[in-house]
Design a protein around this nucleic acid. Sequence first.
DNA 1: CATCCACCCTGTAGGTCATACAGGATCAAG
DNA 2: CTTGATCCTGTATGACCTACAGGGTGGATG
Lengths: 146, 146
Amino acid sequence: MAETASNDGGSYTRGALSKRTGCNIETIRYYESIGLLADPPRTRAGHRVYSQDHLRRLTFVRRCRQLGFSLREIRSLLRLIEGGESACAEVHALTLDHVADVQRKIADLRRMERVLSDMAAQCRQDEIPDCPIIDNLFEENPHREL
Amino acid sequence: MAETASNDGGSYTRGALSKRTGCNIETIRYYESIGLLADPPRTRAGHRVYSQDHLRRLTFVRRCRQLGFSLREIRSLLRLIEGGESACAEVHALTLDHVADVQRKIADLRRMERVLSDMAAQCRQDEIPDCPIIDNLFEENPHREL
DNA sequence: CATCCACCCTGTAGGTCATACAGGATCAAG
DNA sequence: CTTGATCCTGTATGACCTACAGGGTGGATG
């Protein structure tokens, strides 16, 4: 049976799929349990046998996760892509939405970074009783921008 | 009894504390359950009565969360701060660690943004069967930088 | 004084996104 | 045949909350 070998047109065990995709082996089972990955056929003994299609789909899911798409978003993308008509415009729109999300996150983190760096810079690190970092953290609204 | 009023030296209900700190009312109970916020005394009827100290501490926790510290990190900070000796140097170090984390996250998100934007830019949004976004997402290692 | 509604209480379930482990079966190689 | 890797299932854990059901309480109002 196909194991770790590439075996084109082939079949894979869960472990092989995990290695090929870089997806954690337990996560594959998790994705199956939430219906993100189709239940594969089994051997008589109950072992899962994955096809090239499973590999393709899991690769897609994994790639999307790396790009920060949520599982919910990935579900939408898959629905669009598998809806026969290549729903390119909708995929484009979802991608742009996601870019906007990412940009918002970047902006938030930048603000956080600035505040934290300022705090650290004010600290003289000696054992004076009032540390500016600590004082700042105890203030209710120390920085309007957060 | 003190409710929403400022009542210095005072006591607060859970709702009042929630309003003062901006922390969700259920989250306060959650923080108590995980030992992040001390169990307050109760009225005969079992209602929680928070002191100025609780307010101070929850404000601190909330502020740290806004700055992206994890609950675990907040626990460390509180332990340091309450350890009598103002452990300013340690607090400074934890803050710098955290800044580094934040900077890593920013870098990751920037890469994501770039890849996503590139993908979107290549897409002509017509119904041609092969959409560059979709194709890209199906590739196993389309961008070495991710 | 009765009433009313906002608030409080508890316990528990849900949500996201996995990861880990126990206890056992199977498989392939030596 | 034995051994070690891999597979199976079900369940628990982790971070970090949020929400809801089903009930009790408190204080202002009439």
